[in-house]
C-alpha cells in the first residue's frame, strides 16, 4: 500500500479522519474547492477566521479545518462574522454555511451584509432542502417538489439567491454547481481577494434527502442533472423566462469594485483622531 497523503490534508485537523457527510454528498467537493483556493493563493490558514452556522454545510470548516473556526447559532454566522471582521480587519473572514441557515433563518443578515459591502467571503452551499433535519421544504426548494412538509408539492416560489445578493449590492457574486469544481475554486479565489462582500453560491447534491424527494436518486444522477441543466450566464440573454425556469444559471453575476465598510470605518476613525 502506498502512503500518499492528500495534498490538502495539511489544512485539516489531523485527528479528524473522515468527513461528516453522507456518501455522495457534494459538501466535500465544496470543502476541497475552498482549501484548493487557499492553497493556490498561498495564504496561511492562520490568517483566516471561518464562521459557520447550523446545518450540514456548517460542518465544512468546523471542526475539519485547522484554523480559527467559529460554529455559531442558527442563521447568525454573518452577524458573528461582521463582528469578527470589524474587530480584526486584517483577517480573511469566510462564512461557510447552507441555504437554510443563510437565506431562510438568517436571510436578512445576508442581504444587509451585501448592502453594507463588508469584506466577507461567503460560501453558500445550496442543496435546495433542509437536509440535516430530515428533508423539509426550504425557501430554495424548487416549486412543486414533494417533501415531507409539502406532501402535495411545495406551492411557494423559489428563492433565487445569487441575483438577489447581486441586487443587494455585493461586490462579487458567482454561482457554480458541484459539477464545476474548478470554476468554483477560481471564483472562491476571486472572492477571497475581493475587497468587499463576495458570495459564492455552490449548488450541491444531497442524494439522501433531495435525491429521495425529487426521485433523482443518487449522487451520480444528481451530478448528471447539474451537467445537463446548468446554463452559463453569458448564454441566458437569448433565452426566455420559460426556458430558464428549470435551468441552473451558473457563472459570475457581479465582479465590481466599490467602497467597502471596514476601509471606510478606518478612514472615519483616522479622521476623528486627527481632528482636535
Amino acid at each position: 500500500m502506498s502512503t500518499s497523503t492528500h495534498p490538502l490534508k495539511k489544512y485539516t485537523r489531523s485527528h479528524i479522519m473522515r468527513t461528516t457527510t453522507c456518501p455522495g454528498c457534494g459538501i466535500g467537493t465544496v470543502s476541497q474547492a475552498i482549501l484548493r483556493a487557499i492553497d493556490e493563493l498561498e495564504l496561511d490558514m492562520d490568517d483566516f477566521v471561518f464562521v459557520s452556522g447550523i446545518g450540514c454545510s456548517a460542518w465544512i470548516p468546523s471542526p475539519f479545518y485547522n484554523a480559527d473556526t467559529l460554529h455559531t447559532t442558527h442563521g447568525r454566522p454573518i452577524a458573528y462574522a461582521t463582528g469578527v471582521k470589524l474587530g480584526l480587519p486584517d483577517k480573511h473572514v469566510m462564512v461557510v454555511s447552507g441555504d437554510g441557515d443563510l437565506t431562510a433563518i438568517g436571510g436578512n443578515h445576508l442581504i444587509h451584509a451585501a448592502r453594507r459591502n463588508i469584506d466577507l467571503t461567503v460560501v453558500l452551499v445550496n442543496n435546495g432542502i433542509y437536509a440535516m433535519t430530515g428533508g423539509q421544504t426550504a425557501p430554495t426548494t424548487p416549486r412543486g417538489l414533494t417533501t415531507i412538509t409539502s406532501p402535495h408539492g411545495t406551492l411557494e416560489h423559489t428563492f433565487d439567491i445569487s441575483p438577489m445578493i447581486a441586487a443587494a449590492g455585493a461586490s462579487f457574486v458567482a454561482r457554480w454547481t458541484t459539477y464545476h469544481p474548478r470554476q468554483m475554486t477560481r471564483s472562491i479565489k476571486k472572492g477571497i481577494q475581493k475587497k468587499g462582500f463576495a458570495l459564492i453560491e455552490a449548488v450541491s447534491q444531497c442524494p439522501v434527502q433531495y435525491g429521495r424527494a425529487s426521485n433523482l436518486g443518487d449522487a451520480v444522477s444528481m451530478l448528471t442533472y447539474f451537467k445537463d441543466n446548468s446554463v452559463r450566464i453569458s448564454k441566458t440573454q437569448k433565452m426566455d423566462a420559460a426556458e430558464l425556469q428549470s435551468k441552473i444559471v451558473v457563472g459570475e453575476f457581479v465582479d465590481t469594485e466599490k467602497a467597502e465598510l471596514t476601509t471606510e470605518l478606518a478612514q472615519v476613525k483616522n479622521k476623528l483622531r486627527a481632528s482636535p
Binding site: 500518499s4 497523503t5 492528500h6 495534498p7 490538502l8 490534508k9 485539516t12 473522515r18 468527513t19 457527510t21 455522495g24 454528498c25 457534494g26 459538501i27 466535500g28 467537493t29 470543502s31 476541497q32 484548493r36 458541484t178 469544481p181 474548478r182
Partner: peptide
C-alpha cells in the same frame, strides 16, 4: 478534485 471525502490522490 471531485472526491467529496478527500480519498483520492
Amino acid at each position: 478534485i471531485c472526491c467529496p471525502d478527500f480519498a483520492i490522490v
